[in-house]
Design a protein around this nucleic acid. Structure first.
Lengths: 244, 244
DNA sequence: CGCCCTTTTGACGAGCTTCAATTCTGGTGG
DNA sequence: CCACCAGAATTGAAGCTCGTCAAAAGGGCG
């Protein structure tokens, strides 16, 4: 079992919570996820899950821990495209003979398992599609962050995104959550240097916007920060439509 | 007919070429596209095709002209997320009851039609999936551009992307293509100001990297520029697998 | 021909980077 | 239990890229 994660819950617990939040799952879907999670395997930090431009064998479900999609330029500059959190799908895509569009590396110790086939239940298929739509929303948000926000806004906006995403999996409440990324990792995601991120973070602490110590992040006024950044709930689609 | 576009070709010509480049289309697919293109309609520049957070009625196919996915911050800052070029699908997504993830506006005069239902042919369905995968690749490329490239690299990288995308639809050859975007539009896509874009462009002209006048852009050494930026062909998937 | 949008230019300032050194922290072994 | 170590956070000084403001020049279309 991974340190810092409750042992009273099944290994798929957070992931299951997230998928259920994306759409009601029927018994078949839940059983399939629980079955898949028994074939999970544990990864150390910085282990590669997918390699850019290599074939993907099948979709993977991230059960515990964080991972990141990464792209590295010829001269070594690194851009982190997105974080992957418990319950996120890795290498899930739209086509046969798929090829990884980016490298995926664990950030922390992590547990993964093969993602159950969406054919087992239309509700699971729906949840997967929602997950894909959310991925796209995250990319668009990241583009906006990098293109048109300053360092302070980028950092705050990222924290708000992480809070909402982790809350889906039950891993964040009351504006606070476990934050395993280093400032250097944040810098590579936000298109900044770790030195500058550090200065921004210190200012945010001074202003009382956040608290961050020992891997635990606290957002002090969610509502105020959200409308500072023009937040509105991500709403990619309605719930799984029920037949009346 | 739209000025500057050959009148000897059907209105769906460039779009059809692009989709055929994404995977061999069978007769049913081609017929469906040609049928859909007879129900096309013409839009003026700056007309809205989709509105963020509103319901999408169905996917749209861009036949001629350019459009752009846009997001506007509360204080008016604008980020262009991506350009949409002839043959691109608009509002194509993974789920029922879909909601637009961003606003889509025409950049030039444009012609659109309802995208034919992918159910008419598995080859068409495959082309649509390829198109989705390419969209994702464009987002990731845009994130990398904004996060880890300087102004000069961003501009060059964008031009190379546009060249490759337009070439798919037969709208670019020998390193040159019609470029309808203003420098201000480029700035809003590349996360810069139009003043700075202007200075970068002038430098590129002086260095002999590009020529750009009267809406026509020329890249002077594709190969050299490509490996300057670590280019490699976008390869999201194999062609439609043929049954042996 | 004249208007409006786009491009271009200049001067100045701010935000972020770079480099380098120092302090802190959590984990390890004696 | 404490000394030690490596990675992470922090600090300072200096400089460059890019933004801002403002004004002028160009170019296409009615």
């Amino acid at each position: 079992m991974i340190a810092g994660i409750s042992t009273r819950l099944g290994p798929a617990d957070a992931a299951l919570r997230r998928l259920r939040a994306l759409g009601d799952l029927d018994a078949a879907a839940i059983a399939a996820i629980e079955a898949a999670s028994t074939r999970s395997r544990c990864l150390a930090p910085h282990e590669e899950i997918l390699s850019e431009r290599e074939r993907i064998s099948g979709a993977t479900l991230l059960l515990e821990g964080w991972a990141m999609q990464v792209r590295v330029l010829a001269d070594g500059r690194r851009q982190i495209l997105d974080f992957l959190l418990p319950g996120d799908l890795i290498g899930h895509c739209h086509q046969e003979a798929p090829v990884a569009s980016s490298t995926v590396i664990t950030l922390t110790r992590a547990r993964i398992c093969p993602a159950p086939d969406p054919m087992v239940s239309p509700t699971l298929d729906h949840a997967y599609r929602m997950s894909l739509a959310l991925d796209e929303a995250h990319y668009l948000r990241q583009i906006t962050r990098l293109g048109r926000m300053n360092a302070h806004e980028r950092t705050l906006d990222l924290f708000l995104e992480l809070y909402d995403r982790l809350a889906l999996a039950g891993l964040a409440t009351d504006g606070s959550f476990a934050m395993p990324a280093t400032q250097e990792v944040l810098a590579d995601l936000l298109g900044l240097t770790s030195v500058h991120i550090n200065r921004v973070i210190q200012q945010m602490r001074k202003l009382g916007e956040i608290g961050w110590s020992r891997g635990h992040l606290e957002l002090h006024d969610l509502a105020a920060q959200r409308d500072l950044l023009g937040w509105h709930p991500v709403h990619v689609s309605s719930r799984w439509p029920r037949r009346d």
